[in-house]
Simulated assay, not measured.
Amino acid sequence: MDDLPPADLRLDLDRNRFMIWRRPLVIDGEVRACPTCESYRDLAILATQGRVWLRCSAGHVTPEPRLDIAWYNRHCGPTDATFDTLEEGLSEYGL
């Protein structure tokens, strides 16, 4: 399967991006929860430097090696806003 979306809409690896994942995130049949607080909803999925990280609403950040930039590109949809900092963006989404 091709890496979607089209090349002109794909993640720029030199820029930090994130999306909010409101529902439980299921990876390999397992609901992914924060290893610190066990939160499993309203995760920020961060993509930076070619890796994917998860940030729970309590602010714990953990790498997710089972997800890659191709997965991020397939699930992110179009960007509807840009923010100077991650905290500014998360605040805009109420996290």
Rank of each mutant, 00 (worst) to 15 (best):
L25A: 03
L25S: 04
L25R: 01
I27T: 06
I27G: 07
D28W: 06
D28F: 06
D28I: 02
G29R: 08
G29Q: 12
G29D: 15
E30Y: 09
E30P: 01
E30W: 10
V31K: 12
V31C: 08
V31P: 03
R32W: 13
R32L: 13
R32K: 14
A33Y: 09
C34P: 03
C34A: 06
C34L: 08
P35K: 15
P35I: 13
C37Y: 10
E38D: 13
E38A: 13
S39N: 11
S39H: 12
S39T: 14
Y40S: 13
Y40K: 10
Y40T: 09
Y40C: 10
Y40V: 05
Y40R: 13
R41G: 13
R41P: 03
R41S: 13
D42P: 01
D42A: 04
L43H: 09
L43M: 12
L43I: 08
A44R: 02
A44E: 06
A44C: 11
A44S: 14
A44D: 09
A44H: 07
I45T: 06
L46I: 08
L46Q: 04
A47R: 00
T48M: 12
T48E: 15
T48R: 12
T48D: 15
Q49T: 00
G50Q: 02
G50I: 01
R51S: 12
R51Y: 01
R51A: 12
V52N: 03
V52E: 07
V52S: 04
W53E: 10
W53V: 00
W53G: 04
L54S: 11
L54E: 09
L54Y: 11
L54Q: 11
L54I: 11
R55D: 08
C56M: 10
C56R: 02
S57K: 06
S57F: 06
S57E: 08
S57T: 07
S57H: 05
A58D: 11
A58M: 08
G59D: 06
H60Y: 10
H60V: 05
H60C: 10
H60D: 11
V61I: 13
V61Y: 03
T62L: 14
T62M: 14
P63I: 02
E64P: 06
E64R: 00
E64D: 11
P65C: 05
R66L: 14
L67M: 09
D68S: 03
D68Q: 01
I69C: 06
I69P: 03
I69W: 02
I69D: 12
A70K: 01
A70T: 02
A70W: 01
W71M: 01
W71T: 01
Y72D: 11
Y72W: 09
Y72E: 12
Y72A: 12
R74I: 00
R74W: 09
C76S: 14
C76E: 09
P78C: 07
T79Y: 15
T79S: 15
T79D: 15
T79C: 15
T79W: 14
